[in-house]
Design a protein around this nucleic acid. Sequence first.
DNA 1: GCAAAAGTGTTTGGGATACACCCATGC
DNA 2: GCATGGGTGTATCCCAAACACTTTTGC
Lengths: 224, 224
Amino acid sequence: MKYTTPYVAPTLVVDAVIFQLVEGKLSVLLMQRPNEPFKGAWALPGGYNPQGETTSVALERIVEQKTGISIIKDLSYIEQLYTFDTVARDPRGHAVSVTYMGCGRDLIASSEAAADFYPVDNLPELAYDHAAIIDYAHQRLIAKLSYTNAVYAFLPPRFSLAELQSAYEAVFGYELDKRNFRKKFLSLGLTTETEEMRREGAHRPARLHKFNSQTLEVLSRSFD
Amino acid sequence: MKYTTPYVAPTLVVDAVIFQLVEGKLSVLLMQRPNEPFKGAWALPGGYNPQGETTSVALERIVEQKTGISIIKDLSYIEQLYTFDTVARDPRGHAVSVTYMGCGRDLIASSEAAADFYPVDNLPELAYDHAAIIDYAHQRLIAKLSYTNAVYAFLPPRFSLAELQSAYEAVFGYELDKRNFRKKFLSLGLTTETEEMRREGAHRPARLHKFNSQTLEVLSRSFD
DNA sequence: GCAAAAGTGTTTGGGATACACCCATGC
DNA sequence: GCATGGGTGTATCCCAAACACTTTTGC
């Protein structure tokens, strides 16, 4: 392959769509942009990927630096999402954005960062094409929960079946039948009943369960 | 974000995994490398993505130039596959490869190119990590055929149900029951029976069918 | 005893699977 | 008439969906 001019690569950026449940709602980590373009608007955490750094390493460094959240240490699940050809992203011209999607729980952005979690059904004004990216990530997440055990990423080590069900409902965006849900989920054999119960409030205590595996597995039968 | 050195982007390359059925077998387009590294080994068609060109535009240009096959004109289906952080791809150092997967039929590489289709179950020695990329693409293709109407990309405008079934079998890698296949596929309502029959050989002629849509649609019930 | 969430079974319909023979043609 | 691939139906099983009441607790 010949070029009459020397090869110059497009700008490469990485961006992360990080989900967790906040007050039962599926929420996404956003940062308020301090500078132009889109000054004041909210955006996915991300930044420039320099030569010599793989996209996952760059993302870990950038997200940790900007939000205090470590993808490696704090997230239970991460996967590459899609690569967007972003047009005219900044004055340096044409940029290519490699995006990742991750899930966790009990995530807190460092207080000095202008970063916070927003429910996906009530997002603020977003910079770039980030609304579309979040939507795409949400679709992917729905699919992941349908054919894998990926819910584990949202839940604590011990959880009630009600919590589990409401995690699915938060992601899917609709309600499930309690009896059918339990029957089907338990028949998948992904979890084990523990001896622990959770007593809270004036009602019957909930039996707690745990996942047999904390790594991604494909289900034998897909889910909802 | 501050850098003490000026920002330099990694090399960006694009690669294509282009499938078609050849003599009933799922096959992939490969090129023999004329130069080091991996001189003489076979590789996916691809090349450098310069600044100012989106990955899909660069891929179209490169693949057409190197193999004579136009993704836009000759393929019935194309989608982005994954972005690989390729290590030490060439002397310029760290490269990032955005890969695409496409499907077509009756594709012929231009005769002056050292390019040809090889059955996926009998590949030659491959350069880079291309064996892994082809395997990944194959998995994705199996999934696509399972939950969308993507088979249309492999078939001519009019086709027999036997042809249709053998396209699925070539991709899935196992055989299907003829009666169950027809019952299920026809119940999806993706195709229409035509008046045409195909007479060939000493046996009953085959009824020809056509797809109602030549664009990707998600199935109501997933397939096999 | 009452409010609040946890827990539990049965019925029904539809799709998945398994399986073997007749049909139309060319030679 | 025979070889070749095209075309068809039924029985069974399992899963999905629909649906309402009892249990355990704190106050």
